[in-house]
Design a protein around this nucleic acid. Structure first.
Lengths: 219, 219
DNA sequence: TTCGCAAGATTGTCCGACAAGTTATCATGA
DNA sequence: TCATGATAACTTGTCGGACAATCTTGCGAA
């Protein structure tokens, strides 16, 4: 088995950069991301830019119809519900399975601790990041590449709307930390039903706040 | 609202064609799929071929490392287990949710009937196709684009190994039909636990047969 | 006002070219 | 003999330019 070096082609780096800029709202929703604009910004060939855009479209971080420019999608209520629903399907079952084992991986515990630490401060982006990291660590601990990937795709799309709505302020970090703790407790107690319910409650809580905020913003 | 015509660009058609050829083993596992070979076979530009290959790599239907040709992956035991596991996570929760509703969509029922009809005959590819269609119809009836997409990705990869191993003969169609019926019955009975268990049992059954066959073939 | 056409913007696709990396072959020297 | 290093062939990574097809917009004509 060879040791794999972490090299990155221009194309891969471009995708990574664009993805990060989208998720941090450096590229805001609505504005067109044309192939030409990417070419100009990064001094890459149009092919490279095009491939990167197509990749992000596949990930749901950009949307496009033929012969029109790609844009960061603005997620409406329907989409948000779908995201939370799909995420709930995966996470609830994951927590159930983890609870059957009754063990919390060290990564997940670390992520939980990091979140708790962030929750003390006011660095909103880092709170969101640590929140995401916690849930991903739990799913990852099932050690299923395909499940982790499916979860990651959904989470990334969700980060999109979390960024758009300044939702960080909607939720009390301390309360999120308590809900996270409830999930971990249920897992450690080997109570699958409770673990799944705690996960779903956590999601339902965030979803309702987000939807209420969106409805208010639109009205 | 405009009516959307089902137009397809060369690139999209190329992806679709390659995907179908891979899933039907017209492009067998192991043989390299070079950009040049695709260019030659379809008379398209290398960029177009490259983009199509990259897309299929993202779907898991091809694998590639930098500067080496793409190939249809040969799934080992570990991968097969992961596929069944991830699929189980999604499907079990789906059937649970459907059982809470207690209704089976007409599409799902139609798919079940089609499968039963196919099971009578000897057309193995169509049996596999109808089997896949049944499960997809159930997931689709939850009306969640993102969940359906995640499920589709996993199912497609699974079709890959179903094609590689001539597994059609491993399972008795009549038995599959009975297991499908059990899932539908549990859903109609509004018995979420039973629906999920029936789904998982169905998968475990297929998985064990497949793994046994693979182990035998390798030994 | 409405229709239709021309112009600009943007993507879809192609061609050709060169750099960079991988693999296999083979000659070299210890 | 065998490890080393050079070479060539193959393949992908990236670039530049070009033209066609399509969408959008604005303007002029009926």
């Amino acid at each position: 088995m060879t040791i794999r070096l972490a090299t990155q082609s221009v194309g891969e780096a471009l995708v990574a950069s664009l993805r990060e800029r989208i998720l941090t709202e450096d590229i805001p929703a609505g504005v067109p991301v044309t192939e030409a604009s990417v070419v100009e910004a990064y001094s890459v060939a149009r092919q490279t830019a095009k491939a990167a855009i197509e990749r992000l479209v596949a990930e749901g971080l950009l949307e496009r119809t033929t012969h029109k420019s790609a844009r960061v999608p603005v997620l409406d209520e329907r989409q948000v519900k779908d995201l939370y629903f799909a995420r709930g399907v995966i996470e609830s079952r994951c927590y159930e399975l983890l609870a059957e084992e009754g063990k919390v991986s060290s990564d997940a515990q670390t992520a939980h601790d990091s979140f708790a630490a962030s929750a003390e401060g006011d660095d909103l982006p880092s709170i969101v990041y640590e929140d995401v990291r916690f849930h991903r660590a739990l799913v990852d601990s099932l050690d299923s590449p395909r499940l982790s990937r499916a979860h990651e795709l959904i989470i990334n799309e969700m980060r999109l709307c979390l960024a758009q709505v300044q939702s960080h302020q909607l939720l009390d970090p301390a309360e999120i930390a308590r809900e996270h703790q409830a999930i971990l407790d249920a897992i450690r107690d080997k109570d699958p039903r409770q673990a799944a319910d705690a996960g779903l409650a956590h999601l339902a809580h965030a979803e309702s706040k987000l939807l209420a905020h969106m409805a208010a913003g639109k009205a």
